[in-house]
Simulated assay, not measured.
Amino acid sequence: MKTLLASAVMALGLAAPTVAADAVEGTWQTQVDDGAYAYVTIAPCGSNFCGTISRTFNSDGEYNSPNKGKQIVRDMAPKGDGKFEGKVWRPSNDKIYIGKLDQSGDRIKLKGCVAGGMLCSSQTWARIQ
């Protein structure tokens, strides 16, 4: 009986990070960057999470950007408490940065850093779905 109870507690403990990580799944609206913004759909990619540009908008409304369908959030590994680490691609300069994502409710703070994390730029995204 003790073994069964210990196994159940261990299974619940291992399941908790997965439940927390699932909260990041969905569609998020980016902030405006170089006159445009996007909807990014975040979903599992292996044991991590990735985000793909699903729709793009500028001052004239929705448009068909060449970046649609490209992965902007890459291999974000859950670190607990809504925090993830991976990589971020910035379409406007076609550079990949060390990425950190901090999800809280219907907001994501996404950071892209260089120089070992000393120089960072960030955006706050809002959940669409």
Score class of each variant (00 low, 15 high):
115 A>C: 08
51 G>F: 11
101 L>G: 05
55 R>H: 14
78 P>H: 06
97 Y>V: 04
88 V>C: 04
86 G>D: 02
123 Q>R: 01
36 A>T: 05
46 G>R: 09
52 T>I: 15
60 D>Y: 02
53 I>L: 12
22 D>L: 09
80 G>C: 14
125 W>T: 00
15 A>Y: 06
12 L>D: 02
55 R>S: 13
74 R>M: 15
99 G>H: 10
49 F>Y: 15
123 Q>A: 15
106 D>A: 03
70 K>M: 14
125 W>M: 04
3 T>H: 05
110 L>S: 02
63 Y>H: 12
26 G>W: 03
27 T>V: 15
65 S>P: 11
17 P>D: 12
47 S>Q: 12
108 I>D: 06
63 Y>E: 04
58 N>L: 02
104 S>Q: 13
28 W>S: 06
50 C>D: 11
92 S>M: 01
122 S>N: 13
127 R>W: 01
9 V>M: 10
121 S>T: 15
33 D>T: 06
88 V>Y: 02
82 G>Q: 04
86 G>H: 05
125 W>F: 06
59 S>Q: 13
22 D>V: 07
17 P>F: 12
27 T>C: 07
10 M>Q: 09
67 N>H: 15
78 P>Q: 01
50 C>A: 10
107 R>T: 08
85 E>G: 06
97 Y>C: 03
81 D>H: 11
45 C>L: 05
80 G>M: 11
36 A>D: 02
90 R>N: 15
29 Q>I: 01
103 Q>F: 00
57 F>W: 11
83 K>L: 11
103 Q>G: 03
1 M>R: 08
31 Q>D: 13
128 I>L: 15
19 V>R: 09
12 L>W: 07
7 S>D: 13
31 Q>F: 03
19 V>A: 12
10 M>E: 10
9 V>H: 00
98 I>W: 04
84 F>K: 03
63 Y>A: 07
89 W>R: 04
71 Q>D: 14
25 E>I: 00
16 A>K: 09
27 T>G: 02
19 V>G: 00
69 G>I: 13
11 A>C: 11
91 P>D: 05
48 N>E: 10
80 G>I: 12
82 G>I: 02
82 G>F: 07
9 V>C: 06
58 N>S: 00
110 L>E: 03
5 L>E: 09
42 I>T: 12
99 G>A: 05
32 V>W: 09
34 D>N: 15
103 Q>I: 06
122 S>Q: 13
39 Y>F: 11
66 P>Q: 14
42 I>M: 09
62 E>I: 02
17 P>W: 10
104 S>Y: 03
49 F>Q: 07
109 K>D: 13
53 I>P: 00
100 K>P: 00
53 I>E: 06
107 R>P: 00
112 G>M: 04
73 V>Q: 01
111 K>Y: 08
99 G>Y: 12
38 A>D: 09
48 N>K: 15
128 I>G: 05
117 G>W: 10
96 I>G: 03
35 G>Y: 09
82 G>V: 02
28 W>Q: 04
22 D>A: 12
1 M>I: 08
35 G>M: 10
39 Y>M: 03
21 A>H: 06
89 W>L: 09
37 Y>F: 15
47 S>N: 12
63 Y>D: 05
123 Q>W: 01
24 V>N: 00
